[in-house]
Design a protein around this nucleic acid. Structure first.
Length: 567
RNA sequence: CGGGGCGUAGCGCAGUCUGGUAGCGCACAGCGAUCGGGACGCUGGGGUCGGAGGUUCAAAUCCUCUCGCCCCGACCA
């Protein structure tokens, strides 16, 4: 490709809106251009990178028996109603809805479990057909409340999503190991260090899930990682060892005046107990208007994702003070003692300790010596606590680290949620009807491209890992001398004849401009033809990640390329 | 959805407070010189100042409304 004709220019300066390095470099190198918030065009260079990433994903999916196909972006709402996701609070408005001319409700697919389940109904009837895995690389649309970080969180993107179908969970577990390894391979080939962590299943539902995460200070997710035993989870999901509380013989409950003590810190200091001997009462309002009380020991914090899961995925908002007052609740002085009419979801930390200080449900008063279950009842007692930096690993007791990370892939053991919802069943050996067991596995290609850049750049630009580079070779001619131009043109033809895809900088630009653009675009091998090289009947070849190049005689070029550059 | 910021040439910005000829750098076009790290000289094209109302003799500038984009949070896969 001649750069003089390449569509898409490099930019000397970063557009003002770009904050992340990957966002700046994708714009400056001419890989993408933004059309609207979270909606991007891929220019030829960016598109080639995306195609390289897709090629790697195809190879790894095919290697474990995946069958590529293609499913539509526009879906009838009916199949989304069938699985319950059309009307559920999540994904809710993230699912873009519209009507066709006949007045049918339609959606833009944000993932393809529904279409897969629908296909399974008509295509799979026997255990003899199972297991198998299908996948496609297709546009997704998710109407995000907020886009972020260039290509990191967008509304329209392509995803490689794979779906495995099994006769039983045993088969799913077996396959899960294989796709897990395939994902490890993909990220490794793309030059990113991804780690797998236990994750919440979110709107996908199902039994278990893992996310592949790349550590990044700019990441949207926070992980809980144990440096000692290797435990790793998204904090949305993470468990930890809750410290023991104060253990005493239960004493009789007593009301005490605590004027102006509305926070846990105030109360603990005023009464003279550690925060772990207090109970925190938090109120959340669901999308249907129900007020739910989340109860947790005062030294811990509530994990909203865990709480929402207890409430079947409810969309929770902290209740406003006005809402609470009109429901007869005293903000700042509430507790579960003598409070009826609300669901109480309690963290199991309330059983670690005794003689807690809790609200008296009366302005200016708290209760001492509150004990569960002696003094109050709960609807659910489970783990709803959020792991924080400094908490200890539930497995081995070491101190957890909580780095930020960007999610680049997600594996779900879906189980039978979708197949049962739409009646996708097969007959087993005994002629019994069984639901098909499913898994789904996704990687966003554009986000992966951004993360590759985040992980592979220097102050001059991108440093593409060879497998994803838009071109393997970048040929520069320096100067307008006829003999240089002729030699460069000949070399360009020659390299193409050898089967190499070459980006050829044939522009009438100064050396500095060409060098800087080459560094910015980041192709692994740079070949220079100039007066200087011609004088020695050589060319200069330089790897993007090295500081200096080396002169090699023209005659040796072929051999050197063969040994170090993939076609 | 809450908080903050920004919309002036393709990009980066000044001008807005205090109303009075729309500017600068880069990029682009032409000419010249130069040709190994974003040099240089001359000339030139490009703008309904995001949009709509309003105030005014006069609005990029003041007022009202609105649209868009970015960042933080909520949320999210």
């Amino acid at each position: 490709m001649r750069m003089s004709k390449l569509f898409g220019r490099t930019l000397r300066e970063s557009p003002a809106e770009a904050e992340l390095i990957s966002h700046q470099l994708t714009l400056r190198a001419g890989l993408v251009r933004q059309l609207a918030a979270g909606i991007y065009s891929y220019l030829p260079l960016g598109w080639r990178v995306l195609c390289q990433i897709e090629r790697i994903m195809r190879e790894e999916m095919d290697a474990i028996g995946g069958q590529e196909m293609q499913m539509p972006v526009v879906n009838p709402a009916a199949i989304w109603r069938a699985t319950g996701r059309y009307d559920a609070p999540a994904p809710g408005p993230a699912l873009l809805r519209f009507r066709d001319r006949a007045g049918h409700d339609m959606v833009l697919a944000m993932t393809h479990e529904e279409v897969v389940a629908d296909l399974l109904r008509s295509e799979v009837h026997s255990y003899r057909q199972l297991p198998f895995m299908i996948y496609h690389i297709q546009t997704k649309f998710r109407d995000e409340p907020r886009t972020r970080g260039g290509l990191v969180r967008v509304r329209e993107f392509t995803m490689k999503d794979a779906y495995s179908c099994h006769a039983d969970f045993c088969s799913l577990d077996e396959f899960y190991e294989r796709i897990y390894q395939a994902y490890v391979n993909i990220f490794q080939r793309c030059g990113v260090q991804a780690i797998a962590v236990a994750a919440d299943v979110g709107v996908m539902g199902g039994a278990a899930s893992h996310e592949f995460m790349v550590l990044s200070a700019k990441g949207e997710d926070t992980l809980a990682i144990c440096p000692q035993c290797g435990y790793a989870a998204n904090v949305e999901k993470a468990t930890f060892a809750k410290p023991a509380g104060v253990s005493e013989a239960e004493r009789p409950i007593a009301k005490i005046a605590t004027p102006g003590c509305k926070t846990i810190a105030d109360v603990a200091a005023f009464v003279g107990v550690p925060t772990c001997q207090t109970l925190k009462a938090l109120f959340y309002t669901t999308e249907s208007g129900e007020i739910v009380l989340a109860l947790i020991r005062g030294d811990l914090e509530v994990n909203l994702v865990k709480l929402a899961n207890v409430l079947a995925g409810a969309d929770l908002r902290p209740s406003s003070e006005d809402t609470l007052r009109s429901a007869g609740i005293v903000p700042g002085y509430a507790s579960a003692v003598d409070l009826s009419g609300f669901r109480v979801i309690a963290d199991d930390s309330i059983t670690l300790g005794s003689n807690f200080v809790a609200g008296a449900n009366k302005e200016g008063y708290h209760l001492k010596n509150v004990n569960y279950p002696r003094d109050f009842a709960v609807s659910t007692l489970t783990d709803i606590a959020r792991a924080r930096a400094g908490d200890r690993c539930a497995e081995c007791g070491a101190v957890l680290e909580t780095p930020r990370a960007i999610e680049v892939g997600h594996l779900f053991k879906l189980g039978t949620r979708y197949s049962e919802a739409v009646g996708a069943t097969y007959l087993d050996k005994d002629g019994q009807t069984q639901p098909i067991v499913m898994g789904s596995y996704g990687i966003g290609t554009g986000r992966l491209m951004a993360v590759i850049i985040e992980e592979n750049h220097d102050e001059h630009g991108i440093i593409w890992p060879a497998d994803v580079s838009p071109y393997p070779l970048h040929l520069l001619s320096l100067g307008a001398a006829p003999e240089v131009v002729t030699a460069a043109e000949q070399l360009y033809s020659h390299l193409q004849g050898m089967g190499y895809d070459v980006l050829y900088d044939d522009r009438n630009e100064r050396a500095g401009v060409k060098f800087n653009d080459a560094d910015l675009i980041g192709i692994p091998w740079r070949i220079v033809v100039s007066r200087k090289t011609l004088a020695q009947e050589s060319i200069e070849i330089k790897n993007r990640s090295e500081r200096a190049g080396r002169m090699i005689p023209l005659g040796q070029l072929e051999a050197i390329l063969a040994s170090s550059v993939a076609h």
